[in-house]
């Protein structure tokens, strides 16, 4: 698809404008982090030149789970039941493996009611993007603590959370997830690069995105609000993404300053060192990093772990390359001889 003549600036490689990746107008609170994430999803799909009709948007229940209505209006979407998006998404992909599947969930949807399905999706390495819009609170039911609320964090009402949080990234690595990233709705540049990386990945790509709830969890003492996140965000690295359909310019970096990762579809992720040596291709390194941040309370963002060649669920099932949903009758109803043979065996 790549052409050598430069395209007019306002359309992507399919000739689509960014506006064609919009959805319906958002009904979330003005300033909600989730809307910022939606914008970056549109941008990433636009930049990657993905045909919206190939996309399936899946979600559970919550403010975050409503967002698929607000981006990619030209794609099919399925807003299911609370905490069960993983199974719906898995099924949709079993039915049609050509779909590019993006799942939207909240911290309540994923880490509370949906924890089981979340873990099993990751175990299976189902090829899809899974985004947690993590605000440390139940937005839609008006501000109760969730399972990712930090220990000691306080609701506006003064109630203090006395249970430890579940770290979805650490859990994801434990479950064998092959692409694990943490980001922040207030860091569009990083988020879009991580989303593009996710789109070029062949297994489950998990993005735990701190996405502040301006209505219920953005007060002074909140540990998932804009102010806190802006002040505490530490970049693991600077990320550049070079899609497979664009030429790679070679840039000179000093030894150890830059790491380049080739993704499944031939795209490249370039990680430029900030101030620490970190190799996201090491699973044990990722585990160490996350256990360290859990103790220190640091808010590190970036690509925490990636294995671009992990076997995904489709490889395992070894099923038809063409979508099961539309296999013709001749392929799915065996002939009379087969019935005869099975009947003979039962005589």
């Amino acid at each position: 698809m790549a052409t050598s003549t430069p395209k007019p600036k306002k359309v992507n490689r399919l000739g689509l404008a960014l506006s064609e990746y919009r959805g319906r107008p958002s009904t979330l609170c003005a300033g909600c982090g989730h809307d910022a994430v939606s914008s970056q999803i549109m941008k990433a799909f636009y930049e990657m030149g993905i045909n919206p009709h190939q996309v399936a948007k899946m979600s559970g229940i919550g403010c975050s789970s409503k967002t698929p209505a607000y981006f990619l209006g030209a794609s099919h979407g399925f807003n299911g039941v609370h905490g069960r998006m993983p199974s719906l998404a898995t099924g949709a992909l079993l039915g049609n493996r050509d779909l590019i599947c993006v799942g939207l969930s909240g911290d309540g949807d994923t880490a509370s009611i949906g924890l089981g399905q979340f873990c099993h999706l990751l175990r299976r390495n189902v090829p899809m993007i899974y985004i947690i819009e993590n605000n440390g609170v139940y937005g839609l039911t008006k501000g109760q603590f969730s399972a990712t609320s930090d220990l000691g964090s306080q609701l506006k009402s003064g109630v203090i959370n006395d249970l430890p949080p579940i770290d979805c990234c650490a859990l994801a690595i434990e479950m064998g997830c092959s692409y694990v990233a943490r980001s922040f709705a207030g860091d569009p540049k990083q988020l879009v690069a991580l989303l593009q990386g996710a789109l070029s990945h062949s297994g489950t790509a998990l993005l735990d995105v701190i996405s502040p709830c301006v209505t219920f969890n953005n007060h002074e003492s909140s540990t998932k609000g804009y102010k806190w996140a802006k002040e505490h965000e530490e970049l693991l690295h600077n990320i550049d993404f070079i899609p497979y359909f664009e030429p790679i310019e070679t840039v000179e970096y000093a030894e150890g300053e830059m790491q380049e990762i080739e993704m499944h579809d031939g795209s490249h992720i370039r990680l430029r060192k900030v101030d620490q040596d970190y190799d996201p291709m090491s699973r044990s390194g990722a585990e160490r990093l996350l256990s360290k941040t859990r103790e220190s309370g640091e808010f590190l963002t970036g690509l925490i772990y990636v294995n671009p060649v992990a076997r995904n669920f489709f490889d395992l099932l070894d099923f038809s390359e063409s979508p099961l949903a539309t296999l013709p009758q001749e392929k799915v109803r065996p002939g009379p001889k087969v019935l005869e043979e099975t009947m003979q065996e039962l005589m």
Binding site: F78, S87, L88, T90, G91, A92, G95, T326
Partner: peptide
């Protein structure tokens, strides 16, 4: 729950 969720997802995608 997951068993039926998957079956519904697949049905939605057009599979039997």
């Amino acid at each position: 729950l997951a068993a039926l969720g998957m079956a519904i997802g697949a049905g939605w995608a057009g599979a039997r």
